[in-house]
Design a protein around this nucleic acid. Structure first.
Lengths: 208, 208
DNA sequence: ATTCTATGGGACCATATAGTCCCATCTTGC
DNA sequence: GCAAGATGGGACTATATGGTCCCATAGAAT
């Protein structure tokens, strides 16, 4: 699914794959902290200890690298969320999920926001392909949340009439908005509050 | 309150003020569409029809210009929201407020996101002074929403125990997260859904 | 062993961009 | 009217940055 490797037809040895991974990982770290626009290719080279020719050997240019970073970060975030949400089937479990995200973000006092959300808001209007990938990733995230709500419904903890997809969208929206407010305030409180409101709403829709 | 004018001690004639305003307005437009990092000073010069010396006469550099843009956009958004929310005292009024924001954003299919939110997520981690201003602006926005909720409470449409400040934060979070999802999806639906969930929750807290 | 390709290093280039400078012109205060 | 300062124009500079190129080396396939 990645369209970022500039050598789709060529071989890729284990060594090459390792170098490519180093570049992407280094770029992802830098772009999370400095933003995409604030990260130069020289930064990436310095951070990953790779030469410029290697960077351009593996990626057609900065756009391609950014797309690879999005794939990489997306895989990480969705994987993490799959682990965190895949077996949650209670409101209490959702609240633990929220606590983990908030506590993790509190380590940086909210700085940098959501690794996926920050990429999305910076890149969406410049690179349509990247935007589509990000949109799909948010769709997967929302699907994981919808899965939890489905299980809540099955166990009778959520009304059968509850509009699951919309609740999942709203929850993801509250999460992303919370990240943004926390990033601006350098304080995770608004993030916790925002998600909490969404969870309280879901909780209020218990079967009657 | 602006710290962006590089000539705090000097005179500023009407002509100078007009030029300064042209620069800020042009920069604000460009930065909304292209982002801060994607907007060059030459872009600003071309768009506002002003010479480079004038730009540097009024602003110490790009950072100062960005801060002036934040002040300008903040004033516009808060003014707009004050008009839109200042006299709202019903849930129906809040829904009309939401409809107006969603419809306005639908004109661009969600592109560019919230003019304040986009600035916040791009600038917060690079410029602490700008971040503080943005944080304060979000605080004002939240205050306007809290004002509406207070009036709802006074009229008996909202429980006296409702945690107004937290609801206002959650509503603003849902709004911002909705903007972000809409920007990524190029579809305002998730924005509408996200805010709607917050409003439905508030509505569910009617006096009992 | 040899040959071909992938990998690696890093100098080099073209350009974009923030920022400087100098001089001309208009406005204001006296 | 005239001096001082504000406004205006735009050429120029230094540098950062994305991107190119060339050559060296390692490793795989035969």
């Amino acid at each position: 699914m990645t369209t970022t490797d500039s050598h789709n037809g060529r071989r890729l040895t284990a060594r090459g794959a390792k170098t490519r991974a180093k570049i992407v990982a280094g770029a992802a770290d830098l772009m999370f902290i400095q933003g995409v626009g604030g990260t130069t290719l020289d930064d990436v080279i310095a951070a990953s200890g790779v030469s410029k020719s290697q960077l351009y050997h593996h990626f057609a240019g900065k756009d391609a690298l950014v797309r690879a970073v999005i794939d990489h970060v997306g895989e990480f975030v969705i994987g993490r969320e799959r682990d965190a949400l895949g077996h949650v089937s209670t409101i209490a479990g959702l609240r633990r999920w929220r606590d983990a995200l908030v506590q993790n973000n509190a380590l940086r006092h909210g700085a940098y926001g959501c690794s996926l959300g920050a990429l999305a808001s910076e890149v969406s209007d410049n690179d349509d392909l990247a935007r589509q990938t990000l949109s799909q990733l948010f769709g997967e995230w929302q699907g994981l949340l919808a899965g939890v709500l489905h299980r809540l419904q099955d166990s009778g903890a959520l009304s059968p009439e509850a509009p699951i997809d919309q609740l999942a969208t709203g929850l993801l929206g509250a999460l992303q908005g919370g990240y943004m407010l926390a990033q601006t305030a350098r304080d995770v409180t608004p993030m916790a509050t925002s998600i909490d409101m969404a969870l309280t709403h879901i909780e209020s829709l218990s079967a009657h």
